[in-house]
């Protein structure tokens, strides 16, 4: 009956390990990890991985079909584009910009969204009402139109793209965070922190935020996938990163005109986008399951 008999285990270890182990337990999750690792490697060191220079043009080799087709050349596995640039090399180089833009955009929207969501959920009242109306306003405004307007004014640079995409994502983040804050802020440890004199900032930063982090991490993983798609859409519309910098969306956009002569130019980057988004979504799902204590099988 003594209340002093519960053994102390090393819990950080077990918690982190447990989450990682559960996340990567299934084979789709393992495959996703491989895909993302590959994409990340391409993004970090494209020149090391790419078989040749992605910017090298050779008009005598334009619009080659993939290597396994009769007219294909063995060294150009996925053929070439309209300027004779190697598609494989361009996809590998494209990973860098695509992932960079998407991840940075998620960071921007997470920072704004977490701050807004925390404030809305914690202070409630007028602050909450104002932030919710801002969210509604932004979600009601067509995103593409917004981007066209912004790009028309400030020009399509990488920084501008990241900022615009980031701004497009914060309302959803804010909503998720606000909802999580509402469930956590009434738990007794928040009141207890208040009762020992914690400041409002401290309560938000130390007592609420860490407890909603899992929801944020999971949502961020989905959001990266959405941002990749958004970047592809914007590049496709010519509003994204400008040529000759290769991005996956831009490649589809340029390649679609030549899809009759060489289908791989447009399809191959499309497959890359699909694979990475799928990988992010599968990992996001697995991560959510691993972080959700109610789905945990251990006691």
């Amino acid at each position: 009956m003594s209340d002093a008999t519960v053994p102390v285990q090393d819990a950080t270890e077990s918690r982190t390990r447990h989450v990682l182990r559960t996340t990567f337990a299934s084979w789709p999750a393992k495959l996703s990890l491989v895909v993302l690792t590959l994409a990340l490697a391409c993004a970090i060191a494209p020149s090391l991985i790419a078989p040749r220079d992605a910017f090298l043009q050779d008009l005598s080799l334009r619009l080659l079909p993939p290597a396994w087709e009769p007219r294909g050349q063995a060294l150009y596995w996925l053929g070439t584009d309209q300027l004779g640039r190697d598609t494989v090399a361009r996809i590998i180089h494209g990973a860098r910009i695509t992932l960079l833009v998407s991840v940075l955009a998620v960071v921007v929207s997470a920072v704004i969204g977490i701050a807004a969501g925390l404030a809305a959920g914690f202070y409630r009242g007028l602050t909450d009402a104002i932030i919710l109306r801002l969210i509604d306003m932004q979600l009601a405004f067509p995103l593409i139109l917004l981007v066209i307007a912004v790009v028309a004014v400030v020009g399509p640079s990488l920084t501008n793209l990241v900022i615009v995409m980031g701004l497009s994502g914060w309302p959803r983040f804010a909503r998720i965070v606000r909802g999580s804050v509402l469930t956590v802020r009434h738990l007794e440890f928040v009141d207890a922190a208040r009762a020992i004199g914690a400041s409002q900032f401290r309560m938000m930063a130390h007592h609420i935020l860490p407890n909603i982090m899992s929801a944020i991490i999971v949502y961020a993983s989905f959001e990266v996938a959405r941002m990749i798609l958004l970047e592809a859409t914007l590049s496709f519309l010519g509003l994204g990163v400008q040529p000759p910098t290769p991005t996956w969306g831009g490649m589809i956009s340029e390649g679609r005109r030549y899809v009759n002569q060489s289908w791989t130019v447009a399809i191959a980057p499309g497959i890359a986008i699909a694979a990475v988004i799928l990988a992010f979504n599968i990992l996001g799902d697995a991560l959510r399951d691993a972080l959700d204590p109610q789905l945990e099988d251990r006691t």
Binding site: F189, A192, I196, N211
Partner: peptide, 13 residues
């Protein structure tokens, strides 16, 4: 102050 519910009065993380 000490609260009623010790199971939830400590920050779990």
């Amino acid at each position: 102050m000490v609260f009623q519910e010790p199971m939830t009065s400590l920050n779990p993380v």
